[in-house]
Nucleic acid binder design. Sequence first.
DNA 1: ACCTGAACACCGTTCAAGT
DNA 2: ACCTGAACACCGTTCAAGT
Lengths: 236, 236
Amino acid sequence: MAPPPRRPPEPDSAKPRLNRDLVLTTALRLVDTGGLEALSMRRLGQELQCDPMALYRYAASRAELLDGVTELVLDELVIDADTSDWQEQLRRTAHAVRRLALQHPNAVPLLVTRPLSTPLGMRPLGMLRPLELILTLLIRTGFTPPDALHVYRAYYGFLYGHILNELQETVVNPEEEEPLLRLALYRLPPREFPRLRELAPVLAEYDGAAELDAGLDILLSGLAQKLKTDPADHSR
Amino acid sequence: MAPPPRRPPEPDSAKPRLNRDLVLTTALRLVDTGGLEALSMRRLGQELQCDPMALYRYAASRAELLDGVTELVLDELVIDADTSDWQEQLRRTAHAVRRLALQHPNAVPLLVTRPLSTPLGMRPLGMLRPLELILTLLIRTGFTPPDALHVYRAYYGFLYGHILNELQETVVNPEEEEPLLRLALYRLPPREFPRLRELAPVLAEYDGAAELDAGLDILLSGLAQKLKTDPADHSR
DNA sequence: ACCTGAACACCGTTCAAGT
DNA sequence: ACCTGAACACCGTTCAAGT
């Protein structure tokens, strides 16, 4: 984008020891393998074999480091605008986001939580890019900008809700842990939790992709319906 | 529920210095006023004027303390089953959860994040109670148990998604910060973020309750529709 | 001007020593 | 048997001292 920031003149064989991308990639790896609390400045410095203080060149604080990791994950998301069917497009994107979340489950708390600490306008650009892309897509296929925003909100809300849901119900080793889930549920006091206990077998068969599609069916048809019946309501 | 756990015999005027409820209430207060990172064992001990180690009687680790705070917040939720209209009931509950989130915004990351670290079956009972209550409600009004679970998932997913959405867009002082939001958005590179910039005025007028209701309209009518057309599909 | 690392002010938790 | 608090192994970040 902008020209690369000034850098000390170097003989072309000497690569810079560190750069932002390497720092963030390594940080994400730490999160992926050890969870969020495994990512500390000191641990990261050790991983990169550098003084922890050196990292502050690439992220001014741990909070900014976390934002950087969030951006990095979101950068993996590809939203191709090659189809003109907005419903199909939103559906594909939803599944792409779902896959991303399953690939980086430990980073999901970051995705849902970092934006809470930073007002929309001051977020790193990488966190706003998917929003802009989806707005563009919706507006291009005929929605007014305010309607596009409404659709985005309903869609994004549902999508992130689903992902939280799925990760909550997902167990690491389905085959091995399913009996464990049953056992755990039967441990619940029967008087107080009859329904949950009774649903143990159904809970064990959770199918995330199908559940997501079922939800999208409802949401998308509802949105299409609503926006067809009052296409000019941008009063709010 | 169960008889209170054994306690050293005490003259009836001597109240126990500490108890779980006091510990959790104070912990929640710390979170409410200072955010999640203001809640440390040491700080909490200092607030309760006791040795930090004494807290380990009431929560075996910081993680369990966080779970306890989550339970405490969820306990504030009242789901009254006095109406027979499930849609109305879910709508009221959704607004109750929304109000709860707005009352304890700093605890929301806990609500969405804690369940990710604990398999459903081993969660503290307080975290499972709302799930059981809503399942009961849905089954009582005629849903089969598996359908009730599907409805719950779509509903809960949407609801939590909305809350994350709303808290992300919410600014602390609307009057004062609205110009700031505009300013921040205009700071975005125009070539890359034309849509977001153009939507600045609309973003500034976000109305959470209305947005929630609009989403619920879509979701609930979609659910009612779907479950009416294939009422016996519990195959999955 | 930049980089380094010692030092500060915190953490959660273990465990030995007291009662 | 229970409770206390010193000690351990970590943190993020500041800032003075080096280059």
